[in-house]
Design a protein around this nucleic acid. Sequence first.
DNA 1: ATATCCATGTAATGCGTTACATGATTTG
DNA 2: CAAATCATGTAACGCATTACATGGATAT
Lengths: 196, 196
Amino acid sequence: MSLRYALLALLTAEPLTGYDAAKRFGGSVGFVWHAPDSQIYPELRRMEKEGLIEGEQVRWGPNSTKTRYSITDDGIRAFRDWMNAPVDYGPIRDAPHMRAAYFEWADPDRVRENLQRHIDYYTEQRARWAAMRASILDASHPTIATRIEKYPAQEHERIIAYKAFAYQGLVDRATAEIEWARDGLDLVDKLSPPSP
Amino acid sequence: MSLRYALLALLTAEPLTGYDAAKRFGGSVGFVWHAPDSQIYPELRRMEKEGLIEGEQVRWGPNSTKTRYSITDDGIRAFRDWMNAPVDYGPIRDAPHMRAAYFEWADPDRVRENLQRHIDYYTEQRARWAAMRASILDASHPTIATRIEKYPAQEHERIIAYKAFAYQGLVDRATAEIEWARDGLDLVDKLSPPSP
DNA sequence: ATATCCATGTAATGCGTTACATGATTTG
DNA sequence: CAAATCATGTAACGCATTACATGGATAT
């Protein structure tokens, strides 16, 4: 159900086509909430039917049109309500940690590989999140630039500070994951010394 | 698909009825992988059909029986293979952080509430994970006790160390989340000073 | 006997994934 | 004019969630 609110969040910055929205899910929002294209188009149509957004046909080339969606007042209200409601913490499903608990069943070299992959994965994610945070702070991120143009100056600080804060949390988490996996590599070496 | 492997992992310690397994998902495994009862029974039947586990009818009271499942050699092989395969990191879907990025849309007091809930949630989880870790290390956890009885002494260190390591990671993550939310509370106070 | 476990499900629905599918427009 | 981008989907499947449903066994 959060895809809907992720879309509303995007549309508070500017009107978008389905394609635009799908692109955003490849970067920016996509770093905290993933959604495939095939989910986005139908969801936008559903949201329009419910009056949260409004689609207008705009010309695209000489023989074609595209649908550009804008958020409605109802949509803004729905987004605000959701933002004010308590988050619900979904059930825990953590494959890497579950697997780690049973590492004695894997070959030590495969364990090393998995831990290294964990380090690589979170190193890459951390770089993305850190880059995103930096581009928010200096407003070089295009969506942020559009957004701060649209809202009054006294809001700018909040808009930027909260986004930087969110991404900071993700960076910190990635750091913790990397440290954990490094400890894991040490542990494997202790329990199953590598052949020299 | 990991529910299957969580079940196999449980069954490497001892045979279980569906009910027993479901209980385990309330504690221990449930702290890293959640599954509702209604998913467990059908999955066990499917696994039996595929030969990963074997069900036997055992008496339960004078007029009734229950099904106790044991892991088969095929099941052990499937579990080992899965443990040796690389983890796949699912798509990111992080409601708390996504929401935090748009906190300027919520009332400051609701933001405070949400952050406090985040702190409370992870404080509770951390306590669970830490308790689990402690009961693994001193083998006071019943499933661990059963497990180390079943496997040769030279395996005991690995069995315990990897499980403690897994839960340590979860404890660390919880700590990071709590710190992040505390920073968030400070940030709200800075951006929207509380009325005195 | 009554409450609490223990035991085992079904059904409807929703969310998400993967794969498939197509065509117009702009850019180099 | 070819390649990349923009645009918009459908279909099948699977996993997960919620709600509903039932009944025997054991302990107090």
